[in-house]
Structure formats: C-alpha cells, structure tokens
Amino acid sequence: MKQTVDTFQAIGDPNRRLMLRLLSKDSLTINKLAENFDMTRPAVSKHIKILYRAGFITIEDIGRERHCILNQNGFKELRQWIDYFDNFWQTKLKKLEYLLNEKSKKNAN
C-alpha cells in the first residue's frame, strides 16, 4: 500500500535520480556507484536502500561485491495514474450517457 509513496519519494531526490541514470547505463557495484557522489558511504547506502525498497533497483551479490541493477518494476508503478484515470473516465462517461438517455426517455413519454 505504501508502494506509490515510496516511488515518488524515491525519485524526488536529485542524488537518487542521478544514481538511476548511472545505473541505466550499466549495473554498478555499490562501491563504484558511491565513487560518483560526494557523500559518506552510509549516506549512499541509505539512498540505495530507498531505491531498492521502491522497486527501482535490485541488489545482487556477485562474488564479494554487491551490485546494483536497474529494475523495471519501479517504473511501472509510475504509470498507474494513466490506467486509473482511463478507466475512471470511461466509467463516468457511461454513467453520463445513461443519465442523458434516461432523461430523454422520460421527456418522450
């Protein structure tokens, strides 16, 4: 239920967006990723955790290193509004049409 909130929090931060852009090029180890940022290692880990929790990345242990890999699930979440409102408007318009038709039937009688 908190998924969407996490999604938007996750990409609301410029550092995290930059992390995603870097990972869109290639998967990176946490150390490699951290090299691109002027922040402490725990701070980097915190950002990674947020991206992971929101479904934007997966973390895999390969050998001794932890790799961050871009995950499509986080991005799918962002598109829900389109699906939701598409369905919403279709339903509402059917209701409007029904309402209008009922009224003209009454007027005809």
Partner: peptide, 11 residues
C-alpha cells in the same frame, strides 16, 4: 509530475 517525467524520460 513534470520532474518525474523528466527523470523517467531520461531513463
């Protein structure tokens, strides 16, 4: 959200 659209488009 415009900012999000840019971020996504970028990726």
């Amino acid at each position: 959200e415009p900012e999000h659209a840019i971020a996504i488009q970028g990726m």
